[in-house]
């Protein structure tokens, strides 16, 4: 499954792309994670907050190619994307394993994936550097086997996504 998770609408998906699953997070109702550990210790694999996020994290887990499209803020994902990523912890267990010499949570049925992260906004070189480090960290916790990070201005997002979609469709 190819999944595009975006914090804004993307016109490219008004067109017919049958092999893509597109989620515009800005149209969903997703509350903040409250750090209750319910998805680990009360209802394992399921978030206790039953809003739109519960339809999103299973699709993140099931995808083998994933694209995140997010505005950047202070070297990280801005609120919309970050809220969803925090609500995705049901895909992990509470239990910890060693991965590349570091401790990380054990994943449930999460398909190893190839990821493209498109960060947009007026981004300084320092911010880009921090974001690259963040995605490197995320890769270990989100089962990215390979990933690319791309930075674009806000008015270049559509074209950047179109370019990636064309590559994925070949």
């Amino acid at each position: 499954m190819k999944l595009v998770l975006s914090d804004r609408n993307l016109d490219v998906f008004q067109e017919h792309h049958p092999t893509f699953d597109f989620i515009d997070l800005s149209k969903l109702q997703i509350s903040n994670c409250v750090g209750c550990f319910g998805c680990w210790t009360k209802t394992p694999g399921k978030c206790v907050i039953r809003d739109d996020a519960v339809n999103v994290y299973p699709r993140i887990a099931a995808s083998d190619r994933i694209m995140y499209v997010s505005k950047l803020q202070y070297g990280g994902y801005d609120t919309v994307m970050k809220t969803m990523l925090e609500r995705s912890i049901p895909v992990q267990q509470a239990f910890i394993r060693l991965l590349h010499g570091e401790t990380h949570h054990i994943q449930r049925n999460v398909v190893p994936k190839e990821a493209v992260i498109i960060g947009y906004g007026n981004t300084s070189s320092e911010e880009k550097q921090i974001f690259r480090h963040l995605v490197e960290r995320n890769a270990k916790n989100m089962c990215f086997e390979r990933y690319q990070v791309k930075f674009v201005a806000e008015n270049e997002v559509e074209q950047a996504v179109r370019n990636e979609v064309a590559v994925w469709e070949t």
Partner: peptide, 18 residues
């Protein structure tokens, strides 16, 4: 932590999501 909620280690280790 799981035991306090009546959840076993096996249940906590489920690979199922949703």
């Amino acid at each position: 932590y799981g035991k306090k909620h009546g959840i076993s280690k096996e249940e906590m280790s489920t690979m199922q999501i949703e």
